[in-house]
């Protein structure tokens, strides 16, 4: 997205991006500057409605004078900064980060990642065949691990957590971007149902003591699904359709409308396939909700297409029926 909030007048700062001088408002990030001139930089943990977590390291760029590469999503530009977004060093870093992610998590539902893998010639499989799924990830203590023999590559593969009717947590796809935790916590929802638990490679998103979601503080606003970049969090509907092979985004339509449940005026984008709602998102640039919804807006649509409905209704006369 290229929208830069103008707000109060801000001083312009001159920076050099890949040899080209660009003027951007003071306080912009390097990513903002890149976006403004049309330079594309891959991002995963960056969220347009969240504070940068700086975790995925896929957006790293080279800044002259800096010992290490810097995250473009959070580093603010300074006058005279010289940035290289496509040097050998940044390409190497991006390639390796993609390989490390691809070798440890299932990225099959992460948008754009396949193109990036190709662009950077990333080959996650070179670390060896992936470990099979394991169901003990939630119990792994910090500071110790089973010694590997190197014949397989450790992964976060694990059975999906299906413990409620509304959404599924498939943490075999989780890259630990922190976005769901931030959306659930003080940046948006203030529910604090989930946090990062554990440490190192065994760090994971978890409720307290990994209790099932229905026993947790979750209020099912689904704002975590809204920000999840990998599809680790998905509507139960989408999860089931993917499982049965009927999920097909090319056949889906998006229609943005206003939520009818209350007077706040949140916008809903209904994703429909074959005239059925399959997913609900909310526009991030909408001034009311900034992409956030509550349980009603996010999930309160099943009644519109409940398969039991005709049968139930047939027991009582309804006007308008032929």
């Amino acid at each position: 997205m290229t929208v830069v909030d103008l707000g109060l007048p801000r001083r312009l700062v001159d920076v050099t991006l890949d040899g080209e001088t660009v003027s951007v408002p003071e306080g912009s990030t390097i990513l903002d500057a890149c976006t403004a001139v049309g330079t594309s930089i891959p991002t995963l943990c960056y969220g347009d409605t969240l504070r940068p977590a700086n975790a995925c390291r896929v957006c790293m760029v080279e800044v002259e004078g800096s010992r290490t590469l810097v995250p473009s999503c959070s580093r603010k530009v300074t006058e005279g900064m010289v940035v290289r977004t496509d040097s050998e060093r940044t390409r190497h870093s991006r390639k390796l980060v993609l390989e490390l992610l691809g070798s440890s998590a299932d990225l099959s539902t992460t948008p754009h990642v396949a193109e990036w893998m190709e662009q950077y010639q990333a080959k996650p499989e070179r670390f060896g065949p992936p470990d099979p799924p394991a169901d003990d990830h939630d119990e792994r203590p910090p500071g110790e691990h089973e010694e590997p023999d190197g014949t397989t590559a450790a992964t976060v593969q694990q059975p999906a957590k299906v413990d409620n009717d509304l959404y599924v947590r498939d943490y075999g796809k989780c890259i630990l971007c922190y976005k769901c935790v931030d959306a659930c916590g003080e940046q948006w929802q203030n529910t604090f149902a989930i946090a990062v638990a554990g440490r190192g490679f065994d760090a994971r998103i978890s409720t307290e003591f990994a209790n099932p979601l229905p026993d947790s503080e979750c209020v099912y606003c689904g704002n975590c699904i809204e920000v999840c970049p990998t599809g680790a969090l998905s509507f139960k509907k989408e999860f089931d359709m993917r499982a049965e092979g009927s999920w097909d985004e090319s056949r889906q339509q998006q229609t943005t409308t206003v939520c009818t449940f209350c007077g706040v005026g949140c916008n809903l984008t209904l994703h429909t396939q074959d005239n059925e709602i399959v997913r609900v998102t909310s526009p991030h640039d909408h001034s009311v909700g900034h992409g956030n919804l509550c349980i009603k807006g996010r999930f309160g649509w099943e009644h519109m297409q409940d398969s039991r409905r005709p049968a139930e209704e047939s027991t009582e006369p309804t006007t308008g029926q032929a």
Partner: peptide, 23 residues
């Protein structure tokens, strides 16, 4: 690998791949 906090990908996964390759 044990002491990585797990926050960033290069360290979280890199320390694992380093150990596997050395093994």
């Amino acid at each position: 690998r044990d002491e990585s906090c797990g926050q960033c990908v290069p360290c979280r996964v890199g320390t694992v791949r380093q150990e596997e390759a050395l093994q």
